[in-house]
Design a protein around this nucleic acid. Structure first.
Lengths: 243, 243
DNA sequence: CCGGTTGATGCAAATACTGCAACACTGCGA
DNA sequence: TCGCAGTGTTGCAGTATTTGCATCAACCGG
């Protein structure tokens, strides 16, 4: 284990919590000022941190570039690529794929009919875990700690009359989801949209979810539910590829 | 300059170009296999790379977490925060702020009327540079190399009858934008939406742009243009803060 | 079963890093 | 204007970490 890599990463994580000066960081890490200065100089040169005119260091832009590429190479995204396109062909609706990141859930792929109702692209965006099918499908299979991490920043904003707006209510819903092994978004985020979602597991536990979404006038929730067996088969195929 | 930091970053960049094995990387970097193995082990432990079962290394999830935080700490975003909220109060329309990243343009902030027409959130998403006001405002002030980098991945997809769909046509438009120091999106992406945008400069050159956007039935383009003097003043104030 | 490749690790030599000391620069207050 | 404190920056010898070698374990395919 490389001490220098670990230390660099710890410094970056510290800066990620909030901008800091050389002196602050040297005290935090019990390093001489000149050592910390050189370390930050190096990290800035490779774009991982950025020095403001005020003397504070913040995270650098190169991390943003790298994250885009990290996103594209996600195992789940690659494993699911063909399967969700096949699923879309059969069910005809928009299929979303969401991945569990460290403490958030993100839409990582989407298949929709180019000639159908056009949904605004959501790939890359964080899922609101408490009012989305995929969010609930993933949360249901997380332990308490995992749930807490994902829900830590939730504002519990009410989008529609159906939105779940408290942790207690969500936990009750998640017990049901865990048992039935699928989740629904029943007009909880947008009044005219609903979906059903199933979790995807790997040997490491739940890693994501896939959902089938429709405008209510096209397919209502009972109709969407008819797709659940195929969706669960699809999730199983993806899980196999993930190992 | 820390050799270990530079080398770690180069390895990460190499993996960012595509997944690779220990042996491939050890040959590329002319390191002994065991050295490269240890390096990757360290990078994996801090979440910057991830080893697949196949033995290939890809970028790690921690980069995605860090990029979100990097985004929140952007200098431009902080400098512009109060100014664009004041601008919104005066003009009443949705105000967008976009930043030039390394080779892309991203929406980094937005102010809209909570009781007005609700536009789906775009923060964090890449701007399509060739058919957006902010994209054109930034491109106009970039040199040839910068433009090429930003436009490298453009598909020139045609969204409406007004979309610019070739580099030549865009370059002609950018000459006009550069002269007049503002840009417009005249129904080029969405038929019922248009906006005007102005660039924001720092001592390093153009770093972003701000725009005022409206649905056509609410305010048409000539009406939006009346906001340009105030927008340009706002951009100037932000530039001053950036230094 | 055998051979080749990859995953993984102890050790001494090689290399890189570190704190010290010092200087340059900037901003603030007297 | 001057002095002081704090930050930015760098050469050098002592210290710490890394490196390649050698080796073993595990896995896969013929």
């Amino acid at each position: 284990m490389s001490k220098s890599v670990r230390r660099a990463a710890l410094i970056i994580d510290s800066i990620a919590e909030g901008p800091k000066t050389v002196v602050e960081l040297s005290q935090m890490f019990e390093l001489h000022r000149s050592t910390m200065f050189r370390e930050l100089q190096s990290l800035e040169e490779v774009g991982y941190v950025h020095r403001r005119k005020s003397g504070q260091y913040t995270l650098g832009l190169h991390l943003i570039s790298l994250s885009k590429l990290a996103f594209d190479n996600l195992d789940l995204r690659e494993a699911a690529h063909d399967h969700i396109r096949r699923l879309h062909k059969v069910v005809g609706n928009t299929v979303h794929l969401a991945a569990l990141m460290e403490s958030s859930i993100v839409y990582v792929d989407k298949v929709e009919d180019p000639n159908g109702v056009r949904m605004y692209s959501r790939i890359g965006k964080a899922v609101l875990p408490y009012c989305s099918g995929v969010g609930k499908a993933i949360l249901a299979d997380l332990d308490e700690g995992g749930r807490n991490a994902v829900l830590a920043g939730s504002t519990w904003e009410k989008f529609t009359e159906h939105t779940i707006t408290s942790r207690d209510a969500l936990d009750r819903e998640l017990e049901i989801v865990k048992k039935q092994r699928w989740a629904a978004d029943d007009r909880e985020f947008e009044d005219f949209v609903n979906c059903v979602a199933v979790p995807i597991h790997s040997s490491m536990g739940v890693v994501g979810a896939l959902s089938v979404t429709a405008i209510r006038m096209v397919q209502n929730l009972p109709q969407l539910k008819t797709h659940l067996p195929l969706m669960q088969q699809t999730a199983e195929l993806i899980s196999r590829e993930l190992g």
